[in-house]
Amino acid sequence: MAYLLTINGQSHEVDVEGDMPLLWVVRDHLNLTGTKFGCGMAQCGACTVHVDGVATRTCVMTVADSVGKNITTIEGLQSPQARAVQQAWVELQVPQCGYCQSGQVMSATALLEQNPNPTDADIDAAMSGNICRCGTYPRIKAGIKMASAQFTNAAETA
């Protein structure tokens, strides 16, 4: 069946079964491979995208349920918070293998978009659904703080 999706501001029509998770639609049918597969059951966060601005696990969200939503993948990230996060990620050399990092960046960006100045506890709460087997957690936390400072400063001078 055909489904019309809005991803990164563009319309895409895909002809797949309605129970196909959005993850496999973007990866296998739309060639947006930045969104990763790690568990398939909302346990690891590798597949995180923004659905109407909310960090969402695409491995358990069907294509049928994705219709009419505003979907942003790592390829379409544009907000100042996203840029601040990605800049901090490079500067602090957060990624190791990097496989989890698209999801980490999506979760961190969503956090900062909602809470520009998160505490350690806020960060733990927002990020503990994203597993990193390389253990980059300390640098992720430092990266969010660095981004938060950049964003706060940018907002103040804007």
Binding site: T33, G34, T35, T73, I74, E75, L77, Q86, W89, V90, E91, Q93, V94, P95, C97, G98, Q101, S102, V105
Partner: peptide, 13 residues
């Protein structure tokens, strides 16, 4: 800085 780039923006393959 690290040379295994593209890991912060989903472009690493």
């Amino acid at each position: 800085l690290r040379k295994d780039v593209g890991k912060h923006n989903g472009t690493a393959i």
